[in-house]
Write a protein that binds this DNA or RNA. Structure first.
Lengths: 333, 333
DNA sequence: AGGCGCAATGTAATCGGTTGCATTCAGGTT
DNA sequence: AACCTGAATGCAACCGATTACATTGCGCCT
């Protein structure tokens, strides 16, 4: 039965050498004489030999792969972070695999943290259990973070970023400023809400009650927030809103426009993330830009440093954000 | 040095049994007596033993993982397909890993098609080399397809879908109907363009020259198409356009609105895909909806069937699309 | 001529589970 | 009492590559 996959010993037999030599041709060609190398390579071509990764991994005690755990692949926000990660990992000889934490069970997620599965882990989901993640493969956290997990964090200063949005709206003259937060318990939601509240307090402005506009980052949540806002008393409802995600801001704007209102004339809106799309809708969205590619790149570089055994300071890295002013915000009339 | 990871023989020694018994407790508990099982489980807990996947995979000659190759993770379109795939694969005991074909080299991609890396492959990128993909692990193609690759395809009838868009616009009275295609050479672009042209011909309407509006699926390409359209002669330019992706339609609408024109009053627009966001922008986009989750689910099910060794008819599966009429199209005035 | 060193290659142990086959033993049958 | 059966467990080969160490042989030095 010739249909079995050829193994290294088949190649060795055909080339008339030992398996050790074949192995060296593959992973350390300089150690083999030119003649032998040619013979072996011919034998490899003849048999169509391909290396068995399971066997190599078992022997090497490494996999050459890094797994990224993302909470939700449908959020385009993550895609650019992942591409930043890949831009560092791939040239370094690692391959990047992505797993969606929503679609996998907790048991399976812990399995990704096994050295026999991946050499390292980049965690982009703050809702994972810290217990399962520690003491296994090297881990780096990016954007989100797991409370209690002792691993380097590469992120932005969410509270300060949220304050930036408030400052912008306040500077435009708005005094009733609302905030549509992400899901309760999410580390980003909490930090951004906290930053919003503190910024409002610092300016002596009234603080929104988080419960009024708690949501979940999604388009639909933004639309629902719009309904609540539309139903509220015109004299007391916010004249400006900051959102914890661009998606929610989009959903909100779409809905209020459908009700005949005009943004920013009737309400100013600030988003968060600066996903590509929102520059192209009307009105183009004012938002807080996160340096996504840089977040990914730095997270990957820190992971590589840990894999190389360099001792990492372990501090959080805070990357700067930027307020991008477009056309969804305007002075209070 | 206690810091080594415990192996199965450590557990066996502590439990006072052989490694075979420990192995059976882990993967076939029914075969072991209750007493022994308890003892072994206690030893596992005591040592914190975790099984080495590389070793198991080597012995089993399988990995328990499926890799999905996607051309571009930043396209939210793929996320829901992947979630459909995961919804089938995960309950079946497989884990799903995603690799972005843009960020990996061709060499690396072929490695994913190795049985020692993954048990199966779901290809969502039609631009991969057919040669490297055949004769390795079982493959299923979804949405896009690789010309010449003999593997089951789960997709929509792209030409018919494009014709649906043309029919809608023609029924509204439009006679100069343009099409903004995806990238040249992409299988989807070609099929959708072909369908558009045929539908126009069948109705005796003038055909657009593909070159006029060739693009690449991106927002920015849609914006650029808008500039070309705006610069064209008002008397002869299309009064309606169908796009090969929603993203391009969004980019187009954003740009023409920025120039003071109104959609659909000044130009009707039909998108393609029905990504979630476009229902929330203004105007909500008329589009062709692809059954994304179903595409993913069916692709996964066919792959599972192949893995179980069931002989697959090998035919293409065509899933139905749907024209979703929203507010970006209107009768010709 | 004898000895040394280096380059090229082979030998065999090893990575850590899995599993076919052998063994043991308790309980039941004739 | 001899024998059979089946459940529970152990023994050891095996999956396929890697690599420390041993071996070979050639050229060069003294």
């Amino acid at each position: 039965m010739k249909q079995d996959r050829p193994k290294i010993s088949d190649v060795a037999r055909i080339a008339g050498v030992s398996t050790a030599t074949v192995s060296r041709v593959i992973s350390n060609p300089g150690m083999v004489s030119e003649d032998t190398r040619a013979t072996v390579q011919a034998a490899i071509a003849e048999t169509g030999y391909r290396l068995n990764h399971a066997a190599r991994n078992l022997r090497h005690q490494r996999t050459g792969g890094i797994v990224a755990l993302v909470p939700n692949l449908s959020n385009p926000f993550f895609a650019q972070i992942l591409s930043g990660i890949a831009s560092v990992l791939v040239p370094a000889g690692y391959n990047l695999l992505v797993a969606d934490t929503h679609s996998a069970g907790a048991e399976m997620l812990l399995d990704y943290a096994e050295p026999s599965r991946a050499d390292g882990l980049i965690v982009l989901d703050g809702a994972l259990p810290a217990a399962g993640l520690s003491g296994r493969v090297p881990v780096v956290q990016a954007c989100e973070w797991v409370p209690g997990l002792l691993a380097p964090r590469v992120k932005i200063d969410n509270a300060a970023a949220a304050a930036l949005a408030v400052a912008h709206l306040a500077d435009l003259g708005h005094r009733r400023i609302g905030h549509v937060a992400g899901p309760r318990g999410n580390v980003l939601s909490e930090a951004r809400f906290k930053g919003t509240v503190e910024a409002l307090r610092a300016r002596g402005l009234p603080c929104p009650d988080q419960a009024d506009y708690a949501a979940d980052f999604s388009l639909e949540a933004g639309r629902a927030a719009a309904d609540r806002w539309l139903a509220a008393d015109t004299a007391t409802r916010p004249t400006a809103l900051s959102f914890a995600s661009d998606a929610m801001a989009c959903g909100f704007i779409g809905e209020v426009q459908r009700h005949g209102l005009v943004v920013p004339r009737d309400v100013s809106v600030v988003g968060f993330d600066d996903i590509e799309l929102i520059a192209h809708i009307s009105p183009p969205l004012t938002t807080i830009r996160q340096p996504r590619a840089a977040l990914g790149r730095l997270a990957a570089e820190r992971l590589l440093a840990r894999l190389r055994g360099e001792n990492d300071p372990g501090d959080d890295m805070l990357l700067p954000v930027e307020l991008v002013i477009r056309a969804s915000t305007a002075p209070l009339v």
